[in-house]
Design a protein around this nucleic acid. Sequence first.
DNA 1: TATTTGATGTGAAACAAATCACAAAATATG
DNA 2: CATATTTTGTGATTTGTTTCACATCAAATA
Lengths: 227, 227
Amino acid sequence: MKQITKYVIKNSLKRIFLYRACLARLKMMGVEKVFSYTLANDTGVTPDQVRKDFSEFGIRGNKRGGYEISDLLEKMENIFHRNKDHNIVLIGMGNLGLALSKYSKFVQRNMNIVATFDIDPFKQKIRSDIPVYSMSRLKEIIDRFRIKVAILAVPEISAQQVSDELVRAGIKGIVNFAPVLLKVPPEVVINNVNLCDELESVIYYVHKLMQDEGLKNLEILYKDMKY
Amino acid sequence: MKQITKYVIKNSLKRIFLYRACLARLKMMGVEKVFSYTLANDTGVTPDQVRKDFSEFGIRGNKRGGYEISDLLEKMENIFHRNKDHNIVLIGMGNLGLALSKYSKFVQRNMNIVATFDIDPFKQKIRSDIPVYSMSRLKEIIDRFRIKVAILAVPEISAQQVSDELVRAGIKGIVNFAPVLLKVPPEVVINNVNLCDELESVIYYVHKLMQDEGLKNLEILYKDMKY
DNA sequence: TATTTGATGTGAAACAAATCACAAAATATG
DNA sequence: CATATTTTGTGATTTGTTTCACATCAAATA
């Protein structure tokens, strides 16, 4: 019944995030229009890629006229369902969980952590701005707020068990910070964020870079980021 | 002089991390040997992929006999330079920085945050187990410990400026948590971790999944994680 | 209004990654 | 000791992604 299902965030989607961040900044600076090569320059991709990506997501500009930034941003908001608010739960109020619960960028992007959970809810209650519930109330709260997405920041050892509970409670997507490969039914989306791996990758590449200094053989060691 | 340089962690490298985590667990359980299909099963990839990846990293097993787990892990430790300790600095002791400074998994993998920095070092000093220095001492400490890798957890607004300081101080790799595209010389490796994007991606896919429920057209919406 | 110019949008081509298929090798078996 | 079996390792094939090249369109210009 349970199986490992894994999805990768497509590179084109990551690039769209990149474009959006860039566009938001440009808009703040008062810029109104961009061309594919403007965006490309700012984000380190090629103009072709920008246009292909837009094409994939059904975004169209005006021939010769480039793209209207507000229009572009609006289209992206629709793609990402940013018109509506998204309610999230966070499980595990350790150091990382606490930091994530206070991460203001989520709110800025309409993603609200409406409840957090911990086996010891009293421990962190005092430091948290968001209600901390005991695990026994998981399903109740998830049902009440019709939550579909959870952030999992519990210790490795209990990650699978909590994940099972989340799935039973109707969660359809999990951002998993525990370094475990969760087993979930295929209709549940998992996005693993492994902080150790992120750091270790950099160490690995830095070592390589210093070994074969002079940038020779670079193309074997690195893949230029196409996202 | 400054330019956007971006690297992606290659999928094959990510998979190697995955294999390693799995192998470590198996070893703890007392298992001594694996076959490509064992590992494949546990990690959700194909046996061919496992062997191709091993081949890429120069790891060889015994025909028919599979792979010796200890041997495999040792080879991987060499690949990732895990025999030696890695000293890291962390810049920005806000909520996230503080949580990262206390993240015990780094230490378990021989990655030690030896110093942290903040514009207001006194604010967090009391809550931190690791020394918190003022930004003015950045180069001094980095030089003294011969640090090559930094974790950047400062606010968006100051990320580029701090990144410049890091590069001037001799840092060669940065794990960047600020949602900014850092401009660094090409010999510096950047790994961006954007928490909002990670969460938003999941929301995006969950929406898609619920829209076209029944898993039809799944192959367009998702790419099975090949990592 | 006709012509030139400049940027988009997208098939085609080139490149990269994953899967397949099978030879090679090591072990087990009769 | 020869044969069968099982698993690795890797070219060949397929699949997916990026880059190229150019037709298409909109605006500017004469």
